[in-house]
Computed example of a mutant assay.
Amino acid sequence: MVDIKNVVLTNLSGDCAEYSATYQANVTDITRDMDFVSTFDVSEDGQSCTVSANAIPNYDFNDSSAHFAEPVAEQQISLSIPRTPQAATTPTALSMQSDNAIMLNGVVLDLIANGCYKPDDAAADQDGNIANGCGPTVDWRLDPMGPVSFGTDSHNGHTQPGGLYHYHGNPHALFDPEETNQGSPVIGFAADGFPIYGPHYIDTQTGEMRHAVSGYTLKAGTRPSGKGSPGGSYDGTYIQDYEYTQAGTLDACNGMTVNGQYGYYVTDSYPYVMGCFTGTPDPSFQKF
Rank of each mutant, 00 (worst) to 15 (best):
T204Q: 11
G193P: 15
Q286D: 08
Y201R: 10
P230E: 05
N132Q: 12
A212T: 05
P82H: 12
C16I: 14
T31P: 00
G248A: 13
E74C: 06
D203C: 11
P147K: 01
I130V: 12
V266N: 12
G162C: 13
Y23M: 02
G169C: 11
G226N: 03
N62A: 08
F175S: 12
D35E: 08
K5M: 00
P271V: 07
H172S: 04
T159L: 12
I130P: 01
L164P: 13
T204Y: 00
E74W: 07
K219I: 02
C276E: 12
L174C: 01
Y216I: 07
A25D: 09
S214Y: 10
S229M: 03
W140E: 03
N100I: 02
S64D: 04
A17N: 15
L109H: 06
G133R: 07
I202E: 10
S43E: 07
M103I: 01
Q182Y: 12
A21W: 06
F194Q: 14
F288P: 04
S80C: 05
D41F: 01
N132P: 00
Q205G: 03
A113L: 02
K227W: 01
T180E: 14
D127G: 14
T92A: 12
L104G: 09
V266A: 15
T204H: 01
Y167A: 14
G128A: 02
V258L: 08
K287Y: 03
N100P: 02
P161K: 06
N129L: 04
Y265T: 07
A247L: 13
G183I: 10
N259E: 14
T267Q: 15
N132R: 07
T31L: 11
Q182T: 14
P71Y: 07
V108D: 03
T180Q: 15
T10K: 14
A173I: 01
E178Q: 12
G231L: 11
A25S: 10
G14C: 13
A69H: 08
L250E: 09
P147M: 01
P119M: 07
C134K: 07
E208V: 11
A113S: 15
L9H: 05
Q76E: 12
A55Y: 11
I239K: 06
V138E: 07
G226Y: 02
G135P: 08
G198R: 06
